[in-house]
């Protein structure tokens, strides 16, 4: 399972890179060739969403069972979600700098979508600050799990609901862009969907690696500390 996913990830991402740079895209003003960033910037956020949901699921199961492995899974998923979120926000900043804010020299102008995404990353940063501030592993697991369940509830609001209520330069503010037939050219779908799959797979591969390492580390330490 793990190896086949890993092979699939390598194949999908290699294909997405090649097709992403060489494929045909519609000619658009302002965006021009930077529209190809769709294949790389957007999957970061899908990976973040998957990570937060996985993390919340394991936090929930940890509260049910008290199994330390659930806590490790929740932490690693949240950590990787934060990493992909950081990549998403930085790539978004670079993209916006040369499209929305071209000529103005601005990197950050408090666009609602960007600001809300930054708030979400701060909330998930808080998860790790909270974890590190509790000494006892059982208390830490429980407190972090409860915090994590609250954090995941804010995710759809901060990424979808609130930015759509506010005027934003970010596309996808009207309706459901993932399900419309007009927003994405058919030629781009054939690169975009494999790329999303590839990055979600990459998330899963990295997540599995980190969970395995953390689990080994926990077993090597005789004392039951994470």
């Amino acid at each position: 399972m793990y190896r086949s996913v890993r092979a699939l990830v390598v194949a999908l991402l290699s294909g997405a890179l090649v097709a992403g740079f060489l494929g045909q895209i519609p000619q658009l003003d302002i965006l021009e060739q930077s529209a190809r960033n769709l294949y790389f910037h957007v999957p970061m956020w899908f990976a973040l969403m998957m990570g937060t949901v996985i993390s919340a699921y394991h936090s929930f199961r940890y509260l049910q069972s008290g199994d330390r492995l659930r806590d490790i899974r929740a932490r690693e998923a949240a950590w990787l979600a934060l990493l992909f979120g950081l990549l998403g926000i930085v790539t978004g900043m670079v993209w916006a700098r040369f499209t929305w804010y071209v000529g103005s020299g601005k990197w950050w102008n408090f666009d609602p979508k960007q600001s809300m995404a930054a708030v979400l990353l701060l909330i998930y940063g808080g998860y790790f600050v909270l974890r590190d501030s509790v000494e006892d592993p059982d208390t830490r697991g429980r407190v972090a799990a409860v915090y994590n369940l609250f954090a995941v509830v804010t995710m759809p609001f901060l990424l979808y609901i609130l930015p759509r209520q506010l005027p934003s330069l970010h596309p996808g503010g009207e309706g459901s862009p993932a399900f419309t037939q007009t927003d994405l050219a058919p030629a781009m779908r054939w690169v975009f969907y494999p790329s999303v799959l590839g990055f979600l797979g990459l998330f899963w591969v990295l997540y599995t690696q980190r969970v395995r390492l953390s689990w080994i580390r926990k077993r090597l330490r005789r004392e039951p500390e994470l």
Partner: peptide, 30 residues
């Protein structure tokens, strides 16, 4: 001027390059 002179030619393709490089750096960090 400045960075825009680097990033804007050839239909802003260098923005895509920068984005891919940032993601690559993230993977290498991992």
């Amino acid at each position: 001027e400045g960075l825009e002179r680097v990033m804007l030619p050839d239909g802003k393709i260098y923005v895509v390059l920068a984005v891919v490089l940032i993601i690559w750096i993230g993977v290498v960090t991992m």
